[in-house]
Amino acid sequence: MSAGEYLLQQILNAVSIGSLYALMAIGLSMVFGILRLINFAHGDLIMVGSYTTLLLLLGGTPFVWASLAGIAASTVAGLLMERFAYRPIRGAPDVAMLLTSFAVTIFLENLAIILFKATSRAFPVPALLNTVVSFGNLQIASLNIISILFTIILLFLLTLFVTNTETGISMRAASQDLVAARLMGINVNRVIAAAFAIGSFMAGVVGILWSAKVGKVDPLMGFSPVLKAFVASVIGGLGSIPSAVLGGYILGALEILLQGLLPANIAPFRDALVFLILILLLLFRPNGILGSAEKEKI
């Protein structure tokens, strides 16, 4: 394999993992933009979707249907979370909302442990997601191609939604100034529910791609992705969709780059280095790369 091919291979790896981070970060960021809530339970939506898919697969449902049901389960779980955990405490201090998100996480993870045992289970990856496509010397995992394709489609649809539909524009308005949005008569409940639904839908998609990537599911599987998504959205600048996407891809590139550059004995500390870079970035750009200093709100 030539140097150019190696580089291309690594870029594809970076874009593919970055895509998953971006999709997760969008969900976190949209909700944060409107509610100032960092929803750490967002990761558990991955788990909900993946287990739903797994159980249906074990029951003999074809992969496509099982995945769609898994994505639907994530979406419904996200909506329920909003309705029953976050809506009742809306307007409470940010810390109260953050703690509630921890409570939701603990609840969902322990529920999963009771229902499915704490051990991980193999996720049967269908051939479609488990092959390697060769272009000359280049070997590309079909999962990477599919992750990238799905992300492009979802980002395209999301862009159409937030620029062309009334609910989408309202969502951007609400994330800018919730009180002003209310003064216009924007239905804030609907906008917030829509933000949760979209973010949870994307978490459902990530759940399936993630499970296919690691080949297993477990009750705590959402922890690492949500942490990565959090880092990604902070890198980009919390609260907006473009920053979340940018942050996702930067984080993906950073990880692949470090993995390629670091000597074998340091490689296990890759994540620590990523966080170190994050800290350095925040020292110079406290609001992330695209973030601007926030104005005080009434």
Partner: peptide, 14 residues
């Protein structure tokens, strides 16, 4: 309290 990231037209639409 206009919506800074929204265009003038989008602001009016809101």
């Amino acid at each position: 309290r206009i919506f800074g990231n929204l265009s003038v037209k989008e602001n009016l639409r809101m």
